[in-house]
Amino acid sequence: MWLKVLGGILIVAGCGVWGLLEAKKIRRRLEQIKELRLALNFLEKDITLMYVPLSEALDNAGDFCDGGIGCFFRRGAASLREKSGITAGEAWRSGLAELKKHSALREPELRLLEGVAEQIGISEAGEQRKCLDLVSEQLKIIETRNYENMENNQKLWVYGGFVLGAVVVLLLI
């Protein structure tokens, strides 16, 4: 009997923690989108106002943010510095692979960044500005849209986790 109770508690707690972690990811994702947006703005200024070479500009943008987002820019910069005949698009994609592993970002924003790989570094400053501004604007839209639903989504995951745990326990009984 006690074993069943303990098992039930563990299932509810496990599902609850899973829900809490997912809820935390929602906030983390939005924080990272904001951080990414600011870093892209910084990158755009470095490129269009200071004409800083891309490897240095990516490094500067990387210094501006932490964790996964910083890794994205720094990885791209390091690939370019190797001078192994790599193109800017390839370096950008190598950073993106790193970002996928170390961030809470999801498909829509990752797809936007994938699109930048086709443009980054290969055109004049005005074109670079247009490209980075557009991505920044689109990220802002994703951020705003998700921010409005953030609390509801978080609650859904927190309560949903515990409820799911309880349902599983009831089914097992």
Binding site: Y51, V52, P53, L54, S55, L80, T87, G121, E124
Partner: peptide, 8 residues
């Protein structure tokens, strides 16, 4: 340096 804009 993969930076057309810088060498425009």
């Amino acid at each position: 340096e993969n930076s057309y804009y810088a060498y425009e």
